[in-house]
Design a protein around this nucleic acid. Structure first.
Lengths: 110, 110
DNA sequence: GATAAATTCGACTTTGTCGAACAAATCGAC
DNA sequence: GTCGATTTGTTCGACAAAGTCGAATTTATC
Protein backbone atom coordinates (compact mmCIF):
# COMPACT_ATOMS: atom_id res chain seq x y z
CA UNK A 1 0.00 0.00 0.00
CA UNK A 2 1.33 3.40 -0.96
CA UNK A 3 0.78 5.96 1.79
CA UNK A 4 -0.66 5.51 5.21
CA UNK A 5 -1.60 9.07 5.96
CA UNK A 6 -4.93 10.66 5.27
CA UNK A 7 -5.63 14.30 4.65
CA UNK A 8 -8.29 15.90 6.81
CA UNK A 9 -10.87 15.92 4.06
CA UNK A 10 -10.13 12.31 3.25
CA UNK A 11 -10.86 11.48 6.88
CA UNK A 12 -14.16 13.27 6.68
CA UNK A 13 -15.18 11.52 3.49
CA UNK A 14 -14.17 8.14 4.84
CA UNK A 15 -16.21 8.78 7.96
CA UNK A 16 -19.21 9.81 5.88
CA UNK A 17 -18.91 6.64 3.81
CA UNK A 18 -18.77 4.61 6.97
CA UNK A 19 -21.78 6.35 8.48
CA UNK A 20 -23.87 5.72 5.40
CA UNK A 21 -22.99 2.10 5.60
CA UNK A 22 -22.59 1.19 1.96
CA UNK A 23 -25.45 3.36 0.71
CA UNK A 24 -23.76 6.71 0.40
CA UNK A 25 -23.06 8.35 -2.93
CA UNK A 26 -21.86 11.79 -4.01
CA UNK A 27 -24.87 13.85 -3.04
CA UNK A 28 -25.70 12.18 0.28
CA UNK A 29 -22.08 12.01 1.38
CA UNK A 30 -21.65 15.67 0.76
CA UNK A 31 -24.81 16.40 2.69
CA UNK A 32 -23.67 14.28 5.62
CA UNK A 33 -20.44 16.24 5.83
CA UNK A 34 -22.25 19.52 5.59
CA UNK A 35 -24.79 18.68 8.26
CA UNK A 36 -22.24 17.43 10.74
CA UNK A 37 -19.35 19.79 10.25
CA UNK A 38 -20.79 22.94 8.79
CA UNK A 39 -18.29 22.68 6.00
CA UNK A 40 -19.85 22.90 2.54
CA UNK A 41 -17.57 21.29 0.00
CA UNK A 42 -18.39 21.41 -3.71
CA UNK A 43 -19.62 18.18 -5.23
CA UNK A 44 -16.52 18.08 -7.40
CA UNK A 45 -14.32 18.00 -4.30
CA UNK A 46 -16.24 15.08 -2.90
CA UNK A 47 -16.01 13.10 -6.11
CA UNK A 48 -12.32 13.79 -6.57
CA UNK A 49 -11.59 12.58 -3.08
CA UNK A 50 -13.83 9.57 -3.49
CA UNK A 51 -11.89 8.75 -6.60
CA UNK A 52 -8.53 9.04 -4.90
CA UNK A 53 -9.62 6.96 -1.96
CA UNK A 54 -10.81 4.31 -4.38
CA UNK A 55 -7.48 4.23 -6.16
CA UNK A 56 -5.73 3.87 -2.82
CA UNK A 57 -7.93 0.90 -2.07
CA UNK A 58 -9.63 2.47 0.94
CA UNK A 59 -13.16 2.31 -0.44
CA UNK A 60 -14.90 0.47 -3.24
CA UNK A 61 -17.76 1.46 -5.51
CA UNK A 62 -20.79 -0.31 -6.88
CA UNK A 63 -23.08 1.26 -9.46
CA UNK A 64 -26.78 0.79 -8.89
CA UNK A 65 -29.52 0.64 -11.47
CA UNK A 66 -31.38 3.95 -11.67
CA UNK A 67 -34.50 4.21 -9.55
CA UNK A 68 -37.96 5.09 -10.73
CA UNK A 69 -37.67 8.80 -10.02
CA UNK A 70 -37.85 11.03 -13.06
CA UNK A 71 -34.65 10.66 -15.09
CA UNK A 72 -31.05 10.63 -14.00
CA UNK A 73 -28.34 8.04 -14.08
CA UNK A 74 -27.63 5.32 -11.55
CA UNK A 75 -25.98 6.07 -8.25
CA UNK A 76 -22.48 4.94 -7.51
CA UNK A 77 -22.45 3.91 -3.87
CA UNK A 78 -19.36 3.41 -1.77
CA UNK A 79 -18.26 1.33 1.16
CA UNK A 80 -15.06 1.02 3.16
CA UNK A 81 -12.61 -1.75 2.51
CA UNK A 82 -10.71 -3.39 5.35
CA UNK A 83 -7.69 -1.33 4.39
CA UNK A 84 -9.72 1.86 4.49
CA UNK A 85 -11.02 0.94 7.86
CA UNK A 86 -7.59 0.47 9.35
CA UNK A 87 -6.19 3.56 7.68
CA UNK A 88 -9.04 5.54 9.19
CA UNK A 89 -8.59 4.06 12.63
CA UNK A 90 -4.84 4.67 12.55
CA UNK A 91 -5.36 8.24 11.43
CA UNK A 92 -7.88 9.01 14.15
CA UNK A 93 -5.68 7.38 16.74
CA UNK A 94 -2.73 9.53 15.81
CA UNK A 95 -4.76 12.61 16.49
CA UNK A 96 -6.28 11.16 19.62
CA UNK A 97 -2.89 10.31 21.07
CA UNK A 98 -1.65 13.82 20.46
CA UNK A 99 -4.76 15.36 21.99
CA UNK A 100 -5.00 12.97 24.93
CA UNK A 101 -4.95 14.66 28.29
CA UNK A 102 -5.14 18.17 26.95
CA UNK A 103 -7.83 20.56 28.09
CA UNK A 104 -8.69 22.71 25.18
CA UNK A 105 -12.33 23.48 25.43
CA UNK A 106 -13.38 27.07 25.09
CA UNK A 107 -12.61 27.91 28.69
CA UNK A 108 -9.51 25.77 29.27
CA UNK A 109 -6.05 27.16 29.90
CA UNK A 110 -4.00 27.96 26.83
CA UNK B 1 -8.18 35.26 8.80
CA UNK B 2 -7.66 33.41 5.55
CA UNK B 3 -8.62 29.76 5.83
CA UNK B 4 -10.21 27.96 8.68
CA UNK B 5 -9.22 24.44 7.79
CA UNK B 6 -6.15 22.65 9.01
CA UNK B 7 -4.38 19.80 7.32
CA UNK B 8 -3.76 16.71 9.38
CA UNK B 9 -0.11 17.46 9.90
CA UNK B 10 -0.92 21.01 10.86
CA UNK B 11 -3.21 19.63 13.54
CA UNK B 12 -0.45 17.43 14.85
CA UNK B 13 2.07 20.26 14.95
CA UNK B 14 -0.39 22.57 16.64
CA UNK B 15 -1.09 19.92 19.26
CA UNK B 16 2.62 19.41 19.83
CA UNK B 17 3.12 23.15 20.27
CA UNK B 18 0.28 23.20 22.74
CA UNK B 19 1.63 20.25 24.69
CA UNK B 20 5.04 21.82 25.02
CA UNK B 21 3.42 24.92 26.38
CA UNK B 22 5.54 27.63 24.80
CA UNK B 23 8.83 25.78 25.11
CA UNK B 24 8.78 23.62 22.01
CA UNK B 25 11.07 24.18 19.06
CA UNK B 26 11.88 22.20 15.91
CA UNK B 27 13.68 19.26 17.44
CA UNK B 28 11.48 18.72 20.49
CA UNK B 29 8.25 19.21 18.56
CA UNK B 30 9.29 16.63 16.05
CA UNK B 31 10.20 14.26 18.85
CA UNK B 32 6.86 14.76 20.55
CA UNK B 33 5.04 13.86 17.35
CA UNK B 34 7.20 10.84 16.81
CA UNK B 35 6.78 9.51 20.32
CA UNK B 36 3.05 9.89 20.37
CA UNK B 37 2.05 8.95 16.87
CA UNK B 38 4.81 6.76 15.54
CA UNK B 39 5.05 9.04 12.56
CA UNK B 40 8.58 10.24 11.89
CA UNK B 41 8.51 13.44 9.89
CA UNK B 42 11.70 15.02 8.61
CA UNK B 43 12.79 18.16 10.42
CA UNK B 44 12.27 20.13 7.24
CA UNK B 45 8.60 19.16 7.23
CA UNK B 46 8.16 20.36 10.77
CA UNK B 47 9.81 23.69 10.09
CA UNK B 48 7.86 24.27 6.90
CA UNK B 49 4.61 23.65 8.71
CA UNK B 50 5.65 25.80 11.66
CA UNK B 51 6.34 28.55 9.19
CA UNK B 52 2.97 28.25 7.51
CA UNK B 53 1.14 28.19 10.81
CA UNK B 54 3.00 31.32 11.82
CA UNK B 55 2.03 33.12 8.64
CA UNK B 56 -1.58 32.13 9.22
CA UNK B 57 -1.36 33.63 12.67
CA UNK B 58 -2.01 30.37 14.50
CA UNK B 59 1.26 30.32 16.43
CA UNK B 60 3.94 32.84 17.28
CA UNK B 61 7.68 32.48 17.69
CA UNK B 62 10.22 33.87 20.10
CA UNK B 63 13.95 33.34 19.60
CA UNK B 64 15.92 32.52 22.73
CA UNK B 65 19.54 33.32 23.43
CA UNK B 66 21.73 30.25 22.84
CA UNK B 67 22.39 28.16 25.93
CA UNK B 68 25.76 27.22 27.32
CA UNK B 69 26.00 23.93 25.44
CA UNK B 70 28.84 23.75 22.94
CA UNK B 71 27.99 25.89 19.88
CA UNK B 72 24.80 26.19 17.94
CA UNK B 73 22.33 28.97 17.42
CA UNK B 74 19.44 29.99 19.65
CA UNK B 75 16.20 28.07 19.72
CA UNK B 76 13.06 29.49 18.22
CA UNK B 77 10.23 28.46 20.51
CA UNK B 78 6.56 28.55 19.60
CA UNK B 79 3.25 29.02 21.31
CA UNK B 80 -0.35 29.05 20.18
CA UNK B 81 -2.19 32.27 19.57
CA UNK B 82 -5.86 32.62 20.43
CA UNK B 83 -6.67 32.20 16.76
CA UNK B 84 -4.61 29.03 16.59
CA UNK B 85 -6.40 27.71 19.58
CA UNK B 86 -9.82 28.19 18.08
CA UNK B 87 -8.79 26.87 14.70
CA UNK B 88 -7.49 23.76 16.42
CA UNK B 89 -10.62 23.30 18.48
CA UNK B 90 -12.85 23.79 15.44
CA UNK B 91 -10.83 21.35 13.43
CA UNK B 92 -10.91 18.66 16.09
CA UNK B 93 -14.60 19.19 16.57
CA UNK B 94 -15.33 18.67 12.92
CA UNK B 95 -13.71 15.29 13.07
CA UNK B 96 -15.30 14.46 16.39
CA UNK B 97 -18.76 15.24 15.09
CA UNK B 98 -18.25 13.00 12.10
CA UNK B 99 -16.92 10.18 14.25
CA UNK B 100 -19.44 10.54 17.06
CA UNK B 101 -21.41 7.44 17.76
CA UNK B 102 -19.46 5.21 15.42
CA UNK B 103 -17.93 2.01 16.65
CA UNK B 104 -14.75 1.55 14.76
CA UNK B 105 -12.34 -0.11 17.08
CA UNK B 106 -10.49 -3.13 15.79
CA UNK B 107 -13.37 -5.50 16.47
CA UNK B 108 -16.36 -3.27 15.75
CA UNK B 109 -18.74 -3.83 12.88
CA UNK B 110 -17.70 -2.44 9.55
C1' DG C 1 39.05 26.22 10.66
C1' DA C 2 36.48 22.29 12.65
C1' DT C 3 32.47 21.08 15.07
C1' DA C 4 27.82 21.60 16.86
C1' DA C 5 22.95 23.05 17.11
C1' DA C 6 19.38 24.83 14.86
C1' DT C 7 16.77 27.02 11.03
C1' DT C 8 15.91 28.33 6.17
C1' DC C 9 15.58 27.31 1.24
C1' DG C 10 14.26 25.27 -3.02
C1' DA C 11 12.08 21.76 -5.32
C1' DC C 12 8.79 18.39 -5.80
C1' DT C 13 4.52 15.26 -4.55
C1' DT C 14 0.07 14.73 -2.72
C1' DT C 15 -4.37 16.67 -1.31
C1' DG C 16 -7.98 20.00 -1.63
C1' DT C 17 -11.10 22.62 -4.51
C1' DC C 18 -14.26 23.54 -7.94
C1' DG C 19 -16.84 24.79 -12.21
C1' DA C 20 -17.97 23.18 -16.35
C1' DA C 21 -18.50 19.41 -19.38
C1' DC C 22 -20.34 14.97 -19.98
C1' DA C 23 -23.44 10.75 -19.36
C1' DA C 24 -27.64 8.28 -18.65
C1' DA C 25 -32.31 8.08 -17.98
C1' DT C 26 -37.30 9.66 -18.32
C1' DC C 27 -41.02 12.64 -20.11
C1' DG C 28 -43.96 14.81 -23.49
C1' DA C 29 -45.10 16.20 -27.80
C1' DC C 30 -45.24 15.23 -32.14
C1' DG D 1 -41.20 5.61 -31.57
C1' DT D 2 -37.97 9.23 -31.64
C1' DC D 3 -36.24 13.84 -30.49
C1' DG D 4 -35.28 17.60 -27.61
C1' DA D 5 -35.92 19.19 -22.80
C1' DT D 6 -35.30 18.07 -18.18
C1' DT D 7 -33.34 15.70 -14.29
C1' DT D 8 -29.94 13.20 -11.66
C1' DG D 9 -25.58 12.01 -11.20
C1' DT D 10 -20.47 11.54 -12.41
C1' DT D 11 -16.08 12.74 -14.71
C1' DC D 12 -12.56 16.06 -16.28
C1' DG D 13 -9.15 19.53 -16.29
C1' DA D 14 -6.84 22.97 -14.02
C1' DC D 15 -5.05 25.32 -10.30
C1' DA D 16 -4.25 26.30 -5.04
C1' DA D 17 -2.84 24.60 -0.62
C1' DA D 18 -0.53 21.33 2.34
C1' DG D 19 3.03 17.75 3.02
C1' DT D 20 7.78 16.26 2.44
C1' DC D 21 12.57 16.43 2.52
C1' DG D 22 17.67 16.96 1.64
C1' DA D 23 20.91 20.24 1.28
C1' DA D 24 22.49 24.75 2.27
C1' DT D 25 22.90 28.33 5.59
C1' DT D 26 23.34 30.65 10.05
C1' DT D 27 25.18 31.26 14.61
C1' DA D 28 27.92 29.78 18.24
C1' DT D 29 31.84 27.47 20.76
C1' DC D 30 36.29 25.17 20.88
Amino acid sequence: MSRLFLGEFEQLVLLAVLRQDGNGYGVTLRREIEERTGRRPGLGSVYTTLDRLTRKGFIEARTLAPTEVRGGRGKKVFRLTRGGRSALIASLERIESMARGLTLDADGAL
